[in-house]
Design a protein around this nucleic acid. Structure first.
Lengths: 334, 334
DNA sequence: TATTCGACTGGAACCGGTTCCTTTCCGGAC
DNA sequence: GTCCGGAAAGGAACCGGTTCCAGTCGAATA
C-alpha cells in the first residue's frame, strides 16, 4: 500500500504539498493539485487512518454504547445512527453493555479512555457517578439516548406523554377499567423509560378521576412477557379489564395473542393500545403511539456532531413528538 | 491525559524502558518494572490507540459488515461476535450494508481500505469479484458468515440438512402434503441460505417419493411474510396441506398465527415446523431446528483471530450442527 | 526602483507510541 | 587477568500523516 510520500514523489512535490493538495487546506496551485490527485489516483492511495488520527487528534469515529439489539427499539435506533454516521463519513465503534459489573467496569475503565473516538452515544444507560467521571476524563462529548444526564445532550421521546395519550384514547372511548402491562420488575436499568410510562398512565387516570381503577400487571417488555401477563390478567372472567395499555408494542402484541387464545375478541371485548409502532403492529392492527427510534438515532448523531465541531455549543435535549396511530385494536366498550 | 513520556519521566527511566515494562516484551528488571507500573497507575495512563496502531501496524479492531440487525438471526449473531471480541480485547467497527450500490461501493472502495482493522467478518454477503479484489488488496483476513467465498474462512449452518431434517420429521409423522413457506422472492442477496433450505426440503420429499407434492409459498422470511403466505395457502379449505415447513421461525410463527385466526387447530389439523429456535419459539410451542447464531458469531471470531495471528494458517469452513427440537406444533395427521 | 505583500512550496518538527542498535555492567569460564 | 555472554537500559529511528515556519518568486504599490 502506498503512502503520501509515494504520492508526493510521483507528483514531484514534497509531502507537505501533497498533504495540502489532498486535504484542500492551505495554498496549492491548480496545476500542482491536479498532479497530486492524479498521482494519488494512479497509486490508489488512501490515507492511513491511524497516522491521520495521531497527527490531527481526530479519529473520525463515534463510540456507541448500547444494550443488546434484540429489541426492536434498539435495532432501529442503531440503524438510524449507522446511517447518519455513514453519511458524515464517521466510523462506528460498537460497545455492548451487559449486566455483570466487571465487563461494564472494564469498558469504562480501560476501553473507553483509549481515545478511540471523537464522541460517544450512550443508549439506555444511566451512568454511575464514577462512570460519568471517566467519561468526562476522556474529554469527548457525550449524547445520551433515553435518560438525561447533566452536562450532556440527550434525545428521548416524552414517555410520560406517550402513555398519557394512549390511556386518554381509551378513556375517550368510554373505558374505565384500564390495565397497564409491563411496569417495573422488567429489566432494571434498561427499562428507564418504562417507569415514566407508568407515570403517564397513572396521570391520565387521575385526570379522569379513575385513579382507583389503576391496575399494573408486571411484565418484561417483550412479546412473551406481555403474553404471560395478559394470560394472568384475563384469566379471571369477572375481574377482567375492558382495555389494556402495553408498555411497548411487543408487550401489547403478546397480550393480543393471549386474548385470541383465550377467545376474547379484540376490540369488541377488549381494547389494546401499544407504544412504539413496531414493524409488526400493522399485522396485528394494533392502535399505538408512534415513535421513531430511527429518527432518534439520526438526531443523536446530529447533536453529537454539533458538539464535536464546537465543544462550547450549548447542550440540547431533544424530545421527539408522540403521535397516536389508530388501527382496529381499540373500540368503545360494550 | 498523560503520555508514555510522562510515565517514563515519573519513573525515572527512558521511554523505551517504560514501553518495555508495560508491554512485557524485552528485558526489564523487576524493580524498574514495578516503578513504571506504579507511575502509570498514578497518572492513570492509557496508551493512545492511534499511536500504538501506527507503530505496530495492528489496530486491535475487527470490522464487521452486516445487514440491518432487525432480524433475530443477525442480532444474535452480532451479540456473539461482540462478546467474543470484547473478551479478546478487540474493538468492533460496524459497517452496515444496504441495498443501493453507491453506499456499498463507497464502503468497499473508500472506507474499508483505510486499514482500520486487522480483519473483517462479512455476514450474509456475497461479494462481487470487484469487491473481493478490494478486500484482498487490504491484505486483511476475511471470515464470512453464510455464503462461502474462496480463499477465506467461513462459518454457516448446513442449511440443506436443517430443512431436510425438518421435512423428514413431518414425513416420519405420516404427512405427505407438506408445503414450504418462504422460498425465493424474499430478500434477494440476503436470503443466501434460503435457497439451500428449499433444496433440503425438496431433497427430503424426493427421498420419500413425494416430490410431486412439493409446494412452495413464496414469502419474506418475517412474521408478516409467513402470515400472509399462510393465509393464502390455508384459505382454500380443500387443497390445504397438512403440514408446513417455515424457512425460519419468524415465518413459521407468522403461519401459526394465521392458522389460529383461521380457526385451524395446531397440531391436530396442521403441523408446523420452523428453523432457528427463535426466542419466541417456545411461546408458540413451535417444533424447530435449532441453530445458534450466537455461537456462530463466536466461531467466526475464533477463525478470524487464528488467521490474524498466523496469516498462513489454513482456511477453515465451520458448519455447525442442526438439532431437531420437538415441541407441540407437530403431530401425526388425522 | 525599492518595498511590500500574497501565493506557493519545501524542510523539519511533531503526534505518541515501538523497536533496533548500542553501551554499560556484571558474573562465570578460560 | 582477559574474554565472553547475557541482562538492563538509553538514544534514536521509525510508523505516516499534518502543520508551523521560513524562503522564493512575481506582481502590485509607494
Amino acid at each position: 500500500m502506498s503512502t503520501i510520500a509515494d504520492v508526493a514523489a510521483r507528483a514531484g512535490v514534497s509531502k507537505a504539498t501533497a498533504s495540502r493538495a489532498l486535504s484542500g487546506r492551505g495554498y496549492v496551485s491548480e496545476g500542482t493539485r491536479a498532479r497530486v490527485t492524479d498521482a494519488a489516483a494512479e497509486l490508489s492511495y488512501v490515507a492511513h487512518s491511524s497516522a491521520t488520527s495521531l497527527a490531527t487528534g481526530r479519529t473520525q469515529t463515534v463510540g456507541v454504547i448500547m444494550p443488546p439489539v434484540d429489541r426492536w427499539f434498539f435495532s432501529e435506533l442503531l440503524a438510524g445512527i449507522q446511517e447518519s454516521l455513514f453519511a458524515l463519513d464517521y466510523e462506528l465503534a460498537l460497545y455492548g453493555i451487559r449486566e455483570g459489573t466487571e465487563t461494564r467496569e472494564r469498558l469504562f475503565d480501560t476501553v473507553l479512555p483509549r481515545r478511540r473516538f471523537d464522541g460517544i452515544i450512550a443508549v439506555g444507560i444511566q451512568p454511575s457517578a464514577q462512570e460519568l467521571q471517566w467519561l468526562r476524563r476522556s474529554e469527548r462529548p457525550l449524547v445520551s439516548v433515553g435518560p438525561y444526564s447533566e452536562g450532556s445532550s440527550a434525545v428521548s421521546i416524552d414517555d410520560v406523554a406517550a402513555a398519557r395519550i394512549a390511556t386518554e384514547h381509551l378513556i375517550d372511548l368510554g373505558h374505565t377499567d384500564i390495565a397497564f402491562i409491563g411496569g417495573p420488575g422488567g429489566e432494571g436499568d434498561l427499562s428507564f423509560g418504562d417507569a415514566r410510562r407508568v407515570e403517564g398512565y397513572r396521570g391520565a387516570l387521575e385526570a379522569a378521576g379513575l385513579e382507583k381503577h389503576a391496575r399494573l400487571a408486571e411484565a418484561a417488555p417483550t412479546m412473551p412477557g406481555g403474553y404471560a401477563a395478559a394470560v394472568e390478567l384475563l384469566g379471571d372472567r369477572r375481574g377482567r379489564p375492558t382495555a389494556i395499555v402495553g408498555v411497548c408494542d411487543e408487550a401489547a402484541i403478546g397480550a393480543t395473542i393471549a386474548a385470541r387464545r383465550l377467545g376474547i375478541a379484540v376490540p369488541t371485548e377488549l381494547s389494546i393500545v401499544g407504544i412504539d409502532d413496531h414493524q409488526h403492529a400493522e399485522m396485528f392492527s394494533l392502535t399505538t403511539i408512534r415513535q421513531s427510534p430511527r429518527e432518534q438515532g439520526c438526531e443523536a448523531v446530529r447533536l453529537l456532531q454539533q458538539r464535536i465541531d464546537d465543544p462550547d455549543s450549548p447542550v440540547e435535549h431533544a424530545a421527539t413528538a408522540s403521535v397516536l396511530v389508530v388501527r382496529s385494536s381499540t373500540a368503545a366498550p360494550r
